[in-house]
Structures are given as structure tokens and as C-alpha cells.
Design a protein around this nucleic acid. Structure first.
Lengths: 346, 346
DNA sequence: TTGAAAGCGCTAACAG
DNA sequence: CTGTTAGCGCTTTCAA
């Protein structure tokens, strides 16, 4: 292999391999001058520890696993960036994998994944993080994990987590629409098996209630987190006898579908209908008009979770953390057009 | 760890550890009944080989590295899917990492990455794959790799590769526009340090030449593979005294920017101006109107490259492979409006 | 503060 | 066809 080993360094520095190991791992119990000598030898030989050997002999491989079950590419990349930032900083490796969050043997699959590579722990993103029965089993396998979930506050269930307040952010979006003067606001739901969808729906309902606007069943359309469902759902809303003047899509992809639906019907956004999304994905910036949305920093959130996980693995106590996505107002939302001037379609 | 080891299985099956290893690795030299007995023991104990140990003792870790230096999330996810498909199928692990393709020490960084985890080899995507000096150095380190690059045909330079014919695909797009009757066709270039940009430009020029349309300097705008450059570039083109009737963006993100620019100017696509992209990313499907583009199956291409790499590592000879992205005509392109009826702007 | 010995779980190289 | 012996490069004992 031509790889430099601990022993090579030890020989050059005139110390034992164990001492080099101590220096490489930044342990304190090394005399400064010895450390200096070793560091010089490391530098000179351009020594790099072999991660496999370290992982094999140690209790774990200084590598964390990041699992996702999500079709959203931006979300995944964003998470990867956040996890890498933390891992690189703390000298941990990263293994990323998609998985099927609805598998009945989820806990066992995760355990095997961990054991095969001696992973130090797992960061679980939604919706994997929402399979509580599996998580409980995972905990019995003594696998450290931190989960990211959608909740208005700390669930206090004993498992560490980073919680994202989707309800509050959705509330802010709907409040923004209400303040603009909208009363008939359509809501395009996201995938049923995501807690986040329910939380965002809750935000929608709470906002309407607080502003004294009655909930209309016909303005809430079910669907998944995909463009086509946004398109179809918006189409349906716009075809109502009394169509909504604003539509809130459960994420940006859905909102992009709604935007396309409006434009394909000859409606102009935001003049004929306002549209808002959720997530601040490039979709929302790169459409025309750009979408009002809630900025969800998946990278920051995952970096936080990863740091928490590594801290736990290192034996530290850590507190749970919370984030709230921030309202971003852009060109796709405006006050409703006075009724008399509203354009006649068909 | 509670992990089951080779020895546990060996004891239960009444054979040596080496025999279990042979069965686990699917080596042929095991008598069927012995194999059967071992398999039963493996099943019974739910044995899973430890990848670190295997990697440490073997010549390599049965894991390939995938490197990218690309801001395009869809592209990355798509590649990851392709690589995972091949790796899962062939029982290899996958490590993905971004890297800086313009680092002068690129080869050394890649070497360290490989050595630290004893990677079996690397799949290099553009533009990393285009740093030929670094690749030559990488080869001297005896690191197997397969590169994916943009070229009209096999470069025959001795390094294995999968080549993608961007020129041909770009030619097809421009030919499509020409056949619709467009003569003034704008071209929004992509990042200069991507070969693909040059190849797509070549396709543009070749098509114009073959159709006897003179090249106009003022219709070719420089920029990077980002939305904003597409927006600005298109804006500039549309502001010309004699604006183009069609715009070809070097990728879908650029085209999305052009689309937004057109719409923000009050132009209607495709009636006032046709727009085409390249890549078939979700952008192109999720905009309104959806974009005519060239379908580039990054997943298929990377899966192919990954399989080639693993074959090479296994000692097989492999031939280079080539792909040509396929023209996808959608709503954003149409014949040019007769001059007399062209809408007056400003 | 340092070092020597043992071993992590597996495979390579050789025997039988 | 199967088993034995030695490591892979590191960390964990435990002793000096």
C-alpha cells in the first residue's frame, strides 16, 4: 500500500507506537517535548491514521450514519452538507444511506447497518425518526442516536432530539396571507405519514381560528410532497365555484405545482391568486414569481443534530435543541384583488 | 458489541473460520454439504461480516469512493442513486464526498481519502474527472478509477471512462429549434471550467453551421451554471435591438433563470420566445411551461461507471462506454411568432 | 509519562 | 476441499 503506519512514525520519533497513538488522538498524557517530536515525525512522513484499523480495535469507528427516506434532493444534499460540516470538524466519518422508514424490521436493519461498519451512532431524519416503536427497539440495542422531528416543543420522551416547529412556521405563513386580506385560503397537504404535514396543517387551522376565519373542508386538499399533487390539488381548488384567493402548499414542490396550475389556467400570480410554499428550496427562488415560503435550514439543523450525537458518544450530556423556520416573503403573495375586478375565467 | 463473529459461526458449524469466510465470500471451493451447514449456522446466529475487519485484512475495503464538485443537488442525488444501485448489487460500500476539483494538490487529497479508508477505487465525476494532470498522478499511486467525462467519443488515452456526448445532444436541441423556424437563437453558456460547456457550445455552433445560419457573437452570453446567470443573460439577450426568438440555456437551472427573465419582462413562453434547457432535472418538468431539454440520466451513467470500476478492481478488462442525452420536447419551445405580430415591449 | 503485549475480526498464504 | 498460521494497523489493557 505504501501507507505510512504508526510504527514508521514511532521508529522515526524514537518512541513507542502507543505514544504516537496518544499524540494522534490528542490525549493529554504526553510530555510537550515528546509530543513535539512525534508531531514532527508525523508531518515528515505525512502519516494518516488508517480509519479501518482504528475502528476495528476501538469501541467504535468514529463514523456516524445518516439515514433518510425522502425523495427531496435538495433536502438530502442540504442535510449531507450539514452533517459533513460537523463530521469534518470533529474528525468523524460519515456514511449516508436511504432506507425504508416503513419497513417493519427497521430497527434491525439499522442495527445491522451500525454493526457492519461499527458506526458510532445514527442521525435519524424524518420520517425515519417518527417510527417510535422502532426507535425504542434501537435503544435496546445500545445504539446512540439523535433524531430530528417536527414538534412545537421538546417531547421529553427521553430520546435526544432536535425539534423543528413546523406548526409555528406554517402559522406565520397563513397569518401573513390573512394579514394581506385573504380569507379563502387553500391548503395543499403533504404526505400523511410525515408528522410535519400534520404540524403544518395545525398551523393553518390555528391561524384561521385566531383570525376568526371559519375552516372550509373544500379548501383542504390531500396529497403527497410532489409537484403533480400540487398541480392537481390547485387545479381542483381553482375550479371551485368560489375559488380561494391564496393557496398554501405544504412544501415548495407542491407550491411549484400550484404555481404551474395557476399559470396553466391563465391566472396571474400573485394578482389573481397568491401562492406560498414551505422549505425555501431552490424551487421557491427559481420560479417566477419567486415563492413566499418558510426558510428551513436543513443543513444547520442536521449539523446541530450531528454535533449533539458526537457529544453524546463522547460521553457528554446534551440538551435538546429547537428550531423554527423563518417566514420569507417574496413575490408570489399579494393582497387579494377586489372581488369586482377579479378576472372571469372560462 | 454483542456482534456474532466468524469464529462463533465456525464453532457452531463445526468447521474452521476460514471455511466460514469462504462461504461468506461465495468462493467456489467448498463442498455443497459443508456450505449448507455453514449457511445454516450463519442464518441461525444472524451473522453479519464486519466490514472494517474485512477491509483491514484484505487488500482493499470493498468500498468505492464517489467524488463530486458540483453545486447541482439533483445531479448529486441522481449520481448517488446510481452508485448505490451498483454497490448494493455487488456488495460494495460507498463513500461520497464533495471535493475541490481546482485544488493543486487534488491527486494527493484523493490518495489520502483512498488510503485512510482503504477504498477500492474512485468514480470521478465532472469536473474532477477533467483535471488530467492530477489523474496522471493518481494513476502513479496505483489507485483504480473510472471517470465520467464529456466527449463526442472515446478519448483513447488509456484511462477508463464513460463518456457523455454533450455535443451531439446540444446539436439535437439547436436543430430542433432551427427546424421550428428559429434563426436568432441565443446561447447561455455554462461554467468555463466544465468541458461539458464547451461541448454544448460546439453542438450549438455545429448545428447553426449545418443549417447555414450565421453565428452572432451578441447572442452568446457567458455565465455559470446558476439561475441568476440565466436570468441576467436572458435579460441581456431580450434587451437587444433584435432579440432572439429562442434561447438555449446550457443547463436547466440556467434555462429556469431565462424563463423567469422572460416572464418578468412580460413575455410569454413559448409564444414570444422559446426556451430550452439541458439535463432533464426536475426544474425542467416543474416549471410552467415545462422545458424542452436533453435527458441526461446521471444515475444510469454513474451506475455504469461504478460497475466498470468494480469490474476492473476484480481484475476484469472493461471497455469504455458512451451515452448520448436524449432530446425531450416539451411546452417551452414552439415556432417563432411571425414578425409582424411580435409583441411590442417597452 | 511511557511502553510491551494482546487482540479487534477478518483474510492471505500456505499447508495438508 | 479444508485447516493452520500469521498478520492487516490500530487501541486496549496493564505494567514500568
Amino acid at each position: 500500500m505504501g501507507s505510512v503506519t504508526l510504527d514508521d512514525v514511532a521508529k522515526l520519533a524514537g518512541v513507542s507506537a502507543k505514544t504516537v497513538s496518544r499524540v494522534a488522538n490528542d490525549e493529554r498524557s504526553v510530555r510537550p517535548d515528546t509530543r513535539e517530536r512525534v508531531l514532527r515525525a508525523i508531518e515528515q512522513l505525512d502519516y494518516r491514521p488508517n480509519l479501518l484499523a482504528r475502528g476495528l480495535s476501538g469501541a467504535h469507528a468514529y463514523t456516524i450514519g445518516l439515514l433518510y427516506d425522502n425523495p427531496n434532493a435538495y433536502y438530502i444534499i442540504s442535510m449531507q452538507q450539514g452533517a459533513l460540516a460537523a463530521c469534518d470538524d470533529l474528525h468523524f466519518g460519515l456514511q449516508m444511506r436511504p432506507c425504508n422508514s416503513r419497513s417493519p424490521a427497521l430497527a434491525e436493519e439499522l442495527r445491522d447497518f451500525v454493526h457492519r461498519s461499527r458506526l458510532s451512532g445514527l442521525v435519524l431524519t424524518t420520517p425515519v425518526s417518527e417510527r417510535t416503536a422502532s426507535l425504542r427497539r434501537l435503544a435496546t440495542y445500545d445504539i446512540p442516536f439523535v433524531r430530528i422531528l417536527s414538534a412545537a416543543r421538546d417531547p421529553l420522551d427521553g430520546f435526544p432530539c432536535v425539534y423543528v416547529d413546523d406548526r409555528d412556521a406554517a402559522y406565520a405563513i397563513v397569518a401573513h396571507l390573512l394579514q394581506l386580506g385573504h380569507v379563502r385560503i387553500g391548503f395543499l397537504q403533504g404526505g400523511k405519514h410525515h408528522h410535519a404535514s400534520a404540524e403544518r396543517l395545525r398551523g393553518y387551522k390555528d391561524a384561521l381560528r385566531d383570525y376568526g376565519v371559519p375552516l372550509r373542508k373544500e379548501l383542504m386538499v390531500e396529497g403527497d410532497y410532489v409537484f403533480d399533487d400540487g398541480f392537481r390539488g390547485a387545479r381542483r381548488l381553482l375550479d371551485l365555484a368560489e375559488p380561494p384567493t391564496a393557496i398554501f402548499g405544504c412544501n415548495d414542490e407542491i407550491a411549484a405545482g400550484a404555481l404551474a396550475a395557476a399559470q396553466s389556467t391563465g391566472l396571474s400570480v400573485p394578482y389573481d391568486v397568491s401562492i406560498a410554499g414551505f422549505e425555501d428550496s431552490p424551487f421557491s427562488r427559481h420560479s417566477w414569481p419567486p415563492l413566499t415560503t418558510a426558510r428551513q435550514r436543513a443543513d444547520v439543523i442536521v449539523e446541530c443534530a450531528t454535533r449533539m450525537l458526537i457529544a453524546r458518544i463522547s460521553g457528554d450530556e446534551v440538551d435538546n435543541a429547537g428550531f423554527t423556520p423563518e417566514l420569507v416573503v417574496r413575490g408570489s403573495t399579494a393582497p387579494p384583488r377586489p372581488k369586482s375586478r377579479r378576472r372571469n375565467r372560462r
